[in-house]
Amino acid sequence: MQKTSDPVALAAIAKRMRRTAMEMITAAKSGHPGGSLSIAEIVVTMYFDVLRHDPANPKWKDRDRFILSKGHCCPILYAVMAECGYCPKESLNTLRKLGSIYQGHPDVRFIPALEASTGSLGLGLSLGLGMALSAKLDKSPARTYVVLGDGEIQEGQIWEAAMFGSFHKVDNVLAIVDSNKIQLDGFVKDILDLEPLGDKWRSFGWHVIDVDGHDIPALQAAFAEAAATKGKPTCILANTIKGKGVSFMENNPKFHGAAPSADEFQKAMQELA
C-alpha cells in the first residue's frame, strides 16, 4: 500500500471506498450503508495517513490499533483493509454469505488483522483502553483509535470507560465519535438525546475536538492535536452526515440498516462516480 498525507489523494480513495462499500452491501442485500458512508474519510485518513501499521506484518507489536466499535459499519472497514492488502479484494462481494471472511460484523476469527470482534455496541472503548494500557506497560509508542457511533454512546459502558480513561490518564487512546445524528429508530435527538455532547466528554475529563468529519485536512489536524495532547485522552467529535455522498441516503434514517435496491444502487454509483 502507498501511504499519503495529500488530502486530494485521500479524498479520491474515500470516494472509491464508498463505491466498494455500496457494491458489497448491494451484493449482500443487507447491511448498514448510512454509517459506512459517514465514516469514509475517517477510516481512509486513518489507514492511509495516520496509523503506524504494516499490512505485511499485521501482528507487529508496536503497531497502532484501530477498533471499529460501531461494528455494523464494517463494509467500509473491509474495503479499506482490502485496499491496504490485509484481506483479498476479489471476495469483498461475498459479504455476509456462508463461508465468507467478510462477516456481518467484524470477527477476528475470520480476519486476524482486525484488532477486535465488535458488533454488540458499547464495548470498543474499554477494549481500546486495555490495548493502550498494555502499550504503556511495554513503553511502546503504539496508539489505539476507537470509532464510536453517536447512538452507540447511549450504552452505559462507554461512560464507565470514559471515566476510567481520564482518571488513569490514558493519553494514547483516541475516541472518535461518528456524530451522524441518526440511529436505527430515527434521529438521535428524538430517541435519547446526547447533547450537550462535547460538555459530557469534557466533564468526564477528556480533551474534546470538534471537527467536520468529512474535511480531511481538519481530521488530520485533529489527529495531530490528539497525539500531542498529554495527560488526558482525546475525543474527536466528528460531525458527519449519515449516508454522505449519496443524495437520497443523506440524513435518511431508512438507510441506517437497509441495502439499496438495484435502481438505488445504480443511482448511488452515478453520484459516486
Binding site: 477486535a116 477494549l127 494500557l133 459502558q157 470507560a161 482518571f167
Partner: peptide, 28 residues
C-alpha cells in the same frame, strides 16, 4: 502497583479492558 489496574465499581468495563490487555499480549 504498575501492573495492578483498579477499575472502580464497573465490572463490565473491567472485563473488556482485561480483554483488550489480553489481545495486546498480557495475561490479565
Amino acid at each position: 502497583p504498575d501492573r495492578f489496574i483498579e477499575c472502580g465499581i464497573a465490572e463490565a468495563n473491567m472485563v473488556a479492558i482485561g480483554a483488550g490487555l489480553a489481545s495486546a499480549g498480557k495475561i490479565p
